[in-house]
C-alpha cells in the first residue's frame, strides 16, 4: 500500500503529471518562440501557453449532439493519463536505472501508441467528417512511421541484447553513449524523423492540417477538453525526445551538472524538431507513408546492417 502511494505520488507529481506538464508548457513556449524568431517575429510571452490553457479551462464546453458523448469526453482524458504513465515510467527508470523490468521498452512503445489512438478516438467519436478524415490520416501516418521507428529501436535492443530500458542506460554508462557508433547515429536520424511524425509537426502534421481539414480530430473540441488535448501534445513533446535520449544518448541524470547536460541534450533534439518544422511544407499522406516505408525504412535497415557489422 505504501508502495502504491509512492507510485501515485510519482504519477501525479515528479516525473509524472505536474513535472511533465509544466516542462511541456515551457517547451511549447520554446517551440513558439523559436518558430517566431525563424519567421522574424517576436513571439509570445513566456507564460503564454499557461494563459492559453487556463483560458481554455474556463471556457464553455460544447458537445455536439451527434457525438458519442462518453467516448468524446473519455478520449482526451485517456490520452493524457497514458502520457503521464509514460512519463512516470521513463522518469523512474532514468532516475534509477536499476529499477527496471525486462521488456519495459515494449510497454513504452505500446503506451506511445495510446496518445495517437486517443486523438483518433476523439476524431471518430466527434461525428464530424473532418474529424474522421483527420483521424483516418492519423491511422495511416501511424502505420507509416511505426515500421522504421521499430527498426531503429530494435537496432538498439540487439546492440545491447536487452529490451530493458534500465539495462540500455546502464550499458551506455559502461560502454559510452550509443551515438558514438555510426550505426546508432543513422538509427537516431531515423528516429528523429519518426519523432517528427509522432509529435505531429510539419511536414507530418497531416492529420490536423489546419488549412485542409481544419485541425481534423480537434475540430469539435472546445474549452476544457481542448485544453487537455493541448496539454497532452505539449507533454508528448517532453516524453518522446526523453525516450530517444534515454536509449540513444545515455539517459538523463538528475544530479549536479547532469541536470544541465540533460536539458542541453533535450534542447538539441527539440531544436532539431523545430528547425525541420519550420523549413518544410506539409506533405501528402500517401507521400508520407511512401517516404516512411521506402527511404526511411531503407536507412533504418542500413543502420541495422551496420550494427551487425560491428560499427
Amino acid at each position: 500500500m505504501d508502495n502504491l502511494f509512492l507510485y501515485v505520488i510519482a504519477f501525479l507529481i515528479f516525473p509524472g503529471f505536474l513535472f511533465t506538464s509544466s516542462f511541456g508548457l515551457i517547451v511549447s513556449w520554446i517551440d513558439r518562440k523559436v518558430s517566431a524568431l525563424i519567421q522574424w517575429r517576436v513571439g509570445p510571452p513566456f507564460f503564454q501557453p499557461f494563459y492559453d490553457l487556463l483560458k481554455l479551462w474556463h471556457k464553455e464546453l460544447i458537445i455536439p449532439a451527434t457525438a458519442k458523448k462518453n467516448g468524446f469526453i473519455l478520449a482526451p482524458l485517456l490520452g493524457i493519463s497514458s502520457v503521464t504513465l509514460l512519463a512516470t515510467i521513463l522518469g523512474i527508470i532514468n532516475l534509477n536505472p536499476e529499477y527496471q523490468f525486462i521488456g519495459d521498452i515494449i510497454v513504452i512503445l505500446y503506451l506511445m501508441i495510446i496518445p495517437p489512438l486517443s486523438i483518433v478516438w476523439g476524431g471518430f467519436t466527434s461525428g464530424n467528417p473532418f474529424g474522421a478524415l483527420g483521424a483516418s490520416r492519423e491511422i495511416k501516418l501511424m502505420m507509416g512511421y511505426e515500421l522504421p521507428f521499430i527498426l531503429a529501436i530494435v537496432t538498439v535492443f540487439f546492440k545491447v541484447g536487452s529490451i530493458s530500458l534500465g539495462e540500455i542506460i546502464q550499458y551506455q554508462h559502461v560502454h559510452g553513449v550509443m551515438l558514438n557508433l555510426p550505426s546508432m547515429i543513422v538509427a537516431f536520424i531515423v528516429s528523429i524523423l519518426c519523432l517528427q511524425a509522432k509529435l505531429a509537426q510539419v511536414p507530418f502534421d497531416i492529420s490536423e492540417a489546419e488549412c485542409e481539414i481544419m485541425e481534423g480530430p480537434f475540430i469539435e473540441y472546445s474549452g476544457p477538453l481542448l485544453a487537455v488535448y493541448k496539454l497532452m501534445q505539449s507533454m508528448l513533446q517532453v516524453v518522446f525526445p526523453w525516450f530517444l535520449i534515454s536509449i540513444f544518448w545515455g539517459g538523463t541524470s538528475f544530479q549536479g551538472w547532469g541536470i544541465l547536460w540533460a536539458v542541453l541534450k533535450y534542447i538539441f533534439i527539440i531544436t532539431l524538431v523545430i528547425l525541420i518544422k519550420n523549413t518544410n511544407p506539409r506533405i501528402r499522406i500517401d507521400q508520407a507513408v511512401k517516404f516512411f516505408w521506402g527511404w526511411v525504412t531503407l536507412v533504418a535497415l542500413i543502420a541495422m546492417i551496420l550494427m551487425f557489422m560491428g560499427y
Binding site: 460544447i62 481544419m214 480537434f218 475540430i219 469539435e220 473540441y221 472546445s222
Partner: peptide, 9 residues
C-alpha cells in the same frame, strides 16, 4: 488565429 469557431474567443 484559429480555424474552428469551437476554439475561438
Amino acid at each position: 488565429l484559429v480555424v474552428s469557431p469551437r476554439h475561438a474567443d
